[in-house]
């Protein structure tokens, strides 16, 4: 997929665990894992907003476009 999720990078930068982030934004760790692995088909604005708020970052820090 051309959209790459850099959630791992941001989590490492903020020194936060996946479980902790999942609890803050209110999704399951399984769903967060789906998002991190790039298997997700779509992301809701509300989820993106919650991630940005929790990690104090911009959507562009999490999502990146790379041509196939």
């Amino acid at each position: 997929m051309a959209i790459i999720v850099n959630l791992d990078v941001m989590l490492a930068k903020r020194k936060m665990r996946s479980k902790e982030l999942a609890e803050i934004i209110g999704i399951t760790t399984a769903n967060l894992s789906v998002l991190k692995s790039g298997k997700a088909k779509a992301i809701r604005f509300s989820t993106l907003e919650a991630i940005c708020k929790a990690l104090d970052c911009q959507p562009a820090d999490i999502l990146e476009y790379k041509q196939d």
């Binding site: 999704i27 769903n31 997700a40 088909k41 779509a42 992301i43 809701r44 989820t47």
Partner: peptide
């Protein structure tokens, strides 16, 4: 359903 389940 699959798309809905994979919408986070």
């Amino acid at each position: 359903q699959e798309e809905n389940d994979l919408t986070i």
